[in-house]
Design a protein around this nucleic acid. Structure first.
Length: 564
RNA sequence: UGGGGCGUAGCCAAGCGGUAAGGCAACGGGUUCUGGCCCCGUGAUCCCAGGUUCGAAUCCUGGCGCCCCAGCCA
């Protein structure tokens, strides 16, 4: 569940919670009811997580409830697949709507009746203008619009026409129902907004029962009112829809009076959080699907291995305001590491293997060494790791001509093999091309377990894996999908795609205990990062995703030195 | 003289007239069988200009900058 500090809303103190607190204190409401209202036309992304955590979080903190309501008023782009994925994602994030699952389509009949109510009150009319003509009459941002020639039809004619629209007597787009408000309003949303359009498309829920569908504006607020939503929280771009939202609430016999409050959406550097562009990435094959680990979708984060608790904490930390913002990816990564540091089991895996032969280690001998599972969690216990004469170490952990502060293996240098022995490099074997293919070392039997009885210090500790006991694994290393912090800022966002966002390692070697890794479970490959088993794994063919690398100050030092 | 918002450190964000919280990042240092974790230390006068006040990031006035709106999308 969420990280709410208290059950009485005394935790977070953002402006929305302050408003709610005041509403409760001053008796405007006795309970809090919110809703998360996704349109099922795409997958949920990290931006939605903010809304989900807010709506469900607030409800929980104030002892109220939060509804999951699908805003399914446009069957031309909505699908059951999306409905299913959205429910999965909300649950995965850690929230529960209980029995409060609703669909705007559940209210189609009521909404229709309210439309007739407006017609009867002379506040809505059927317009025969085409979409283009309506646009032409709408005016511009600085000029008032003009009334439609059909604006003054009689109540009887409007009622008749609207009923015939519902009955299917007119083709798609032939007529619409419009509210009669003010074509000269500075707020374009009030220039006689469209309430109903004729649209023949099979709806995921209502099938072909309807051929007219309400617009967002006509459906949202009334749906809120029907459900008794007290605080309807949405993003900033709906701010100027609020007068219209209120107009419907004030002009219709709705059962309750919800209040819309807007907040700024969440944006992340190096990522896109726009359904339209996410769809494009999938459709054009720039990624491997909606749940590609490089995607900003919740399913992508899940497959990547980001724990839901990290996302909840992240959302809590970015705050809630009305200011435009772009959060650095580094914060999300920090949150992910913080959660996994405390929970992930430590294992050894060699991503880019370099063979090492320990010359003075008895041929054919094997032994089991104790390794701590998680230094941050004593209860996690320890495991046995096999050791032998031939091992693999990370290629990057050896340098023939090391720079000054390189605390790893180099000719003549001694390092500790984590949980095993101190070894000293005595020889380098190369192939015809001069590439290092193997290292020869000697070990000190007295340092078994990694401690030196003589108190001798060693500069570095590196990870390793016994050649004889290490299964091969595929490891997928992810980097930002976009190389620019603000993709698309200077042109087509596709041009900003990072060509190195995915590196596939096919010859990594893992310690035996990793063969038991569970899908979705975070594990730390020591000194490298957090990983999780990917669903592409097959028996005997494990595939790991790198969720996030460990902080790497050595890499930072090198980068700095490199720049001179 | 269209309407609606926003403007506090590189990125977020507290602050609600009494003399600038916190987090991330960055940079120093300590510790360490993960160059991880952890620990210590380093940064702003608050978009600008006037004004009110003993005192303003907080109030007033005028500017400037940025974002959203002209779907029968949500």
């Amino acid at each position: 569940m969420s990280e709410a500090d208290t059950p009485n809303g005394e935790g977070a103190r953002d402006f929305i919670r302050e408003i709610i607190r005041a509403d409760l204190r001053e008796g405007r409401h006795s309970t809090v009811v919110t809703r998360f209202p996704p349109e099922p036309n795409g997958y949920l992304h990290i931006g939605h997580a903010k809304s989900i955590c807010l709506n469900f979080g607030v409800a929980e903190e104030f002892g109220g409830r939060c509804h999951l309501r699908f805003d399914d008023t446009n069957p031309s782009r909505e699908e059951q697949e999306y409905i299913d994925s959205i429910m999965d994602d909300v649950r995965w994030l850690g929230f529960d709507w209980g029995t409060h699952l609703y669909y705007a389509s559940d209210y189609f009949e009521q909404l229709y009746l309210w439309a007739e109510h407006l017609i009867l009150a002379g506040k809505a009319y059927v317009d025969d203008l085409s979409a283009d003509e309506i646009r032409g009459h709408r005016g511009t941002l600085t000029e008032a619009g003009r009334n439609s020639p059909y604006r003054d039809r009689s109540v009887e004619e409007n009622l008749d026409l609207f009923r015939r629209m519902r009955a299917g007597e007119f083709p798609d787009g032939a007529r619409v129902l419009r509210a009669k408000i003010d074509m000269a309003s500075g707020n374009i949303n009030l220039r006689d907004p469209v309430l109903y359009r004729i649209l023949r498309a099979t709806h995921p829920r209502t099938g072909d029962a309807w051929c007219i569908y309400p617009t967002y504006d006509f459906a949202h607020g009334q749906s809120d009112a029907i459900e008794g939503i007290t605080h309807s929280l949405c993003t900033l771009e709906f701010e100027d829809h609020r007068p219209l939202y209120d107009w419907f609430i004030d002009n219709l016999p709705v059962p309750s009076k919800p209040r819309q409050i807007e907040f700024s959406r969440l944006n992340l550097t190096h990522m896109l959080v726009s359904k339209r562009r996410l769809i494009q990435l999938v459709r054009d094959g720039h990624v491997r699907g909606w749940d590609d680990p490089r995607m900003s979708t919740l399913s992508g984060f899940r497959r990547r291995g980001i724990p839901p608790a990290a996302i909840r904490d992240f959302v809590r930390r970015v705050g809630l305001t009305k200011s435009e913002n772009v959060i650095e990816m580094a914060l999300l990564e920090h949150c992910a590491r913080e959660v996994m540091n405390k929970t992930a089991a430590r294992r050894m895996a060699v991503l880019n293997p370099l063979k090492v032969v320990i010359e003075n280690y008895p041929e054919g001998q094997t032994e089991e060494l104790d390794a701590v599972n998680n230094p941050e969690d004593p209860a996690a216990g320890s495991r046995k790791v096999p050791f032998g004469r031939e091992i693999f170490i990370e290629r990057d952990d050896f340098m023939e001509e090391p720079p000054k502060k390189f605390f790893r293996l180099a000719p003549g240098a001694e390092v500790r093999l984590r949980y095993a022995y101190f070894v000293t490099c005595t020889g380098v074997v190369k192939d015809a091309a001069g590439r290092v293919t193997e290292l020869r070392c000697t070990y000190d039997p007295a340092t078994r377990g990694g401690d030196s009885p003589d108190g001798r210090k060693v500069k570095g500790t590196i990870h390793w894996v016994s050649a004889q006991h290490a299964p091969v694994a595929e490891v997928r290393i992810y980097d930002h999908l976009f190389r620019e912090p603000d993709p698309g800022a200077r042109g087509d966002f596709v041009d900003d795609i990072n060509p190195q966002s995915l590196t596939i390692l096919t010859d990594s070697r893992i310690e035996p205990a990793l063969a038991d890794a569970l899908p979705g479970e975070a594990v730390q490959f020591e000194r490298q990062g957090y990983f999780c088993l990917d669903r592409d794994s097959a028996p005997g063919k494990p595939v790991f995703n790198r969720t996030v690398a460990l902080r790497d100050t050595w890499a930072k030092i090198q980068a700095k030195d490199g720049k001179g």
